[in-house]
Amino acid sequence: MTETDAYDILSDTFLTVLLASAPVLGVALAVGLFIAFFQALTQIQEMTLTFVPKIAAIFVVLLIATPLIYSTVKTLSDRVFDLIASGTV
């Protein structure tokens, strides 16, 4: 295993983590911004207003994005296990 192979595996791993977490983080960001604007406009400063909708939205997106997350992680793990099985790692 050369340094280039290790770099390729690490870069693919970082890209996989970003792609797998992007839907959940994006929805959390969007819902958080929407709630912050809503609270600023209405001057309602209820703490549960920030957490409950965000948790619900994250849960729904996690249910919807689970196949995408699974296929992304499975692709990386198949590639790494193939490298291990071929003896190049």
Results as ranks from 00 to 15, higher is better:
Gln39Ser: 01
Pro67Tyr: 04
Asp78Lys: 11
Ile35Phe: 04
Ile44Gly: 07
Ala85Met: 08
Ala40Val: 12
Ala36His: 02
Tyr70Ser: 06
Lys74Leu: 04
Thr75Tyr: 08
Glu46Ala: 13
Pro53Asn: 05
Asp78Pro: 05
Ile84Cys: 01
Val31Trp: 03
Gln45Ile: 08
Val80Tyr: 00
Thr66Met: 11
Thr66Asn: 01
Gln43Asn: 15
Ser86Ile: 00
Val52Leu: 15
Val61Ile: 14
Phe37Lys: 03
Ala30Lys: 00
Val73Phe: 09
Tyr70Trp: 05
Val31Ser: 01
Ile44Glu: 03
Ala56Pro: 08
Phe81Val: 03
Val61Tyr: 03
Ala85Pro: 01
Gly87Gln: 09
Ser77Pro: 02
Ile35Ala: 09
Asp82Trp: 05
Thr66Phe: 09
Ile55Glu: 00
Val60Phe: 13
Ile35Ser: 07
Leu49Gly: 05
Asp82Asn: 14
Ala85Leu: 04
Leu41Lys: 15
Ser71Ile: 08
Ala36Glu: 02
Lys54Ala: 14
Leu62Ser: 13
Pro53Val: 03
Asp78Gly: 06
Ala65Asn: 10
Gln43His: 15
Ile55Lys: 06
Ala36Gln: 06
Asp78Leu: 05
Lys74Ser: 00
Ala36Ile: 12
Leu63Ala: 12
Leu41Asn: 12
Leu83Tyr: 00
Glu46Val: 13
Ile55Met: 15
Val61Ser: 04
Val31Gln: 00
Val80Ile: 13
Leu41Phe: 13
Leu62Ala: 13
Leu83Cys: 07
Ile44Ser: 09
Leu49Met: 15
Ile58Ser: 03
Thr75Met: 14
Pro53Met: 09
Gly32Lys: 04
Ser71Gly: 01
Tyr70Phe: 14
Val61Asn: 04
Ile69Asn: 05
Val60Gly: 06
Pro67Asn: 00
Leu33Glu: 10
Val60Trp: 03
Thr48Ser: 15
Thr72Arg: 07
Ala65Glu: 04
Ile64Ala: 02
Ile84Glu: 08
Val73Ser: 03
Phe34Pro: 00
Leu33Trp: 07
Phe51Asn: 14
Ala36Pro: 01
Phe38Ser: 14
